[in-house]
Structures are given as structure tokens and as C-alpha cells.
């Protein structure tokens, strides 16, 4: 296995970097979003611009709507009865994803998702990754082989599983399963990858591997991760958004959020003084 590039301890490093980071293009633009589960308002007037090829972390206490917002971005909430965006819009690359001529199926191919509980299908490792292509009608062996290898390499899993591609994906360890799910998401060629607490069920070593991977992935993908771990947010995100009770309280680059938040609630939360 090749060694991962040394990780830059972000918070400390940034202090010395006086020059502002190169301007980044906004990929996702959320304006005035109100989201409802039936009559229950879960998101209230969210305004948020997420930069391309950066990692943004969503943090906040349980129930504040992080997952809800994340699932709005690939329209997974469509699957829950009674959900509705009553106001506002989400634009990806300038296109409102809730427009009637946007097909959520096509959207989800571009906006991949990794879940809290790793959920490989009860199929072989190979078939898990090929799944996303097979449903698009791609069944050519050579093409599948190629994508499987590329995705597994992309998820830093290839070396560990290359000899057992045809064994069940459920035979892998928890961390490997989660990376398998990441590989599966990579296989369909997304632009954005959403991760909802991807490490919350993993031990510290597996977590470290995923964090390394996140670091790798942001070269080519825009990542949004929900996390309950302040350290994780600090370690692997470029920007952090803090939510509380369905509202976006503060959004800034990670260093600012952790070192000098402008909102007292954010300050209380990141310093662990939150009830």
C-alpha cells in the first residue's frame, strides 16, 4: 500500500498562511430554503453557498437538520411522504434541482451519497461496485472491470480486496465496508459526494483511513460531510457550517469556526459547552 500524503494539520497551518485561499467557484447555492416534514418545519431559511472541490462539514446538535439538508441535495427526501420544500431553492451548477425537468435519478448519479451505517449489498465486492453501472445498462465485462478497479483504487481499497473481488462485500470489516460504499458511489462518476456521519460506527483507525481518503477525494470531488466529531470537522474540512434547530447559525472556513466564531452559540458548541 502506498503511504498517504502527509496530512496537513489544518488549524495550526492556516495561521501562518496569511494569503487568502485561491478563490473557489461556488458549486451549490442554497437560498432561503424552508423544508417541511408534513407540518413540521425542519429547515428554516437556509442560505448557503458551497464551494467546488472543497470539503464542507455540517455540524450541530442532534436533530438540527444536518441530515435533512444533506438529503435535500440529492433529493433523497422525495422518498419520504409529506416532505416539501415550501420556499427557497437549491442550485447546483446554477440549475435548480427541484425544477420539474430535473430527474432525481440523473441528479443522484451526479450527487453520490454515503450513509452513516455502511450498507453494501449482500453481493460480491465486484457486484457491489458494478451495481451502479448495471442499472444504467452497462454490462460489458471490460468496462465493468475497469470501473471496479478505478473506483476501488479511488476509495483506497483496491490493495486490500483485489484478490477477493468475488467474495461477499459483507465479509469486509466495518471500515472496509464503508470504503466499499464510497467506491460504489465513485463508480457512477459523481461530482459531489455527500457523507452522513460516515465514521460514526468506526474505530479510530478505520476513521483515520476514511479521513485520509476524504483528503484525497477533494482533489476531484466536492465533499459535504455531516459529523458529530469536532476533531473530525477540524481535521478534514475546509469550511464548516453550524446548524441549530433547523437554522444555519454560522458558515465560514473551518479555522474561523473553531478559532474565532462570531456567534456565541457556535462558540459554545465547538468548545463543547452546549447543553
Amino acid at each position: 500500500m502506498t503511504l498517504p500524503p502527509p496530512r496537513t494539520p489544518k488549524i495550526e497551518n492556516r495561521e501562518s498562511k496569511i494569503a487568502p485561499p485561491a478563490p473557489v467557484r461556488t458549486l451549490i447555492e442554497i437560498t432561503g430554503l424552508d423544508f417541511y416534514y408534513s407540518e413540521k418545519k425542519a429547515l428554516d431559511d437556509i442560505h448557503l453557498r458551497l464551494p467546488e472541490k472543497r470539503v464542507t462539514a455540517f455540524i450541530g446538535p442532534s436533530g438540527c437538520g444536518k441530515s435533512t439538508l444533506l438529503r435535500c441535495l440529492n433529493r433523497m427526501n422525495d422518498l419520504i411522504d409529506g416532505t416539501a420544500i415550501r420556499r427557497g431553492s437549491i442550485k447546483i451548477n446554477g440549475i435548480d434541482i427541484n425544477r420539474p425537468d430535473v430527474d432525481p435519478i440523473e441528479l443522484r448519479k451526479r450527487v453520490g451519497m454515503v450513509f452513516q451505517k455502511s450498507n453494501p449489498f449482500p453481493k460480491s465486492i465486484y457486484e457491489n461496485i458494478a451495481y451502479g453501472l448495471r442499472i444504467q445498462g452497462i454490462n460489458t465485462k471490460s468496462r465493468l472491470d475497469e470501473v471496479v478497479e478505478r473506483s476501488l483504487r479511488g476509495a483506497a481499497l483496491w490493495d486490500e480486496v483485489k484478490d477477493r473481488l468475488h467474495e461477499s462485500g459483507l465479509g469486509l470489516s466495518g471500515g472496509q465496508q464503508q470504503r466499499l460504499c464510497i467506491a460504489r458511489a465513485l463508480a457512477v462518476g459523481p461530482e459531489i459526494i455527500l457523507m452522513d456521519e460516515p465514521c460514526s460506527a468506526l474505530d479510530p483507525i478505520a476513521t483515520a483511513k476514511i479521513e485520509e481518503l476524504i483528503h484525497e477525494l477533494k482533489r476531484r470531488y466536492t465533499l459535504i460531510i455531516v459529523t458529530h466529531s469536532m476533531q473530525q470537522a477540524a481535521r478534514c474540512s475546509d469550511f464548516t457550517a453550524f446548524f441549530y434547530l433547523g437554522r444555519l447559525i454560522e458558515h465560514a472556513d473551518t479555522r474561523t469556526i473553531f478559532m474565532s466564531p462570531s456567534n456565541p452559540q457556535t462558540e459554545a458548541y465547538v468548545s463543547g459547552r452546549f447543553g
Partner: peptide, 14 residues
Amino acid sequence: PRGFREGSLALGAT
């Protein structure tokens, strides 16, 4: 498990 459904749908399956 719901994870199988969500996993599949999130990959762009109908």
C-alpha cells in the same frame, strides 16, 4: 434493511 434501498436509490437506480 432500509439501507439497501437507500443505497440503491442514491446510486441513481429507479
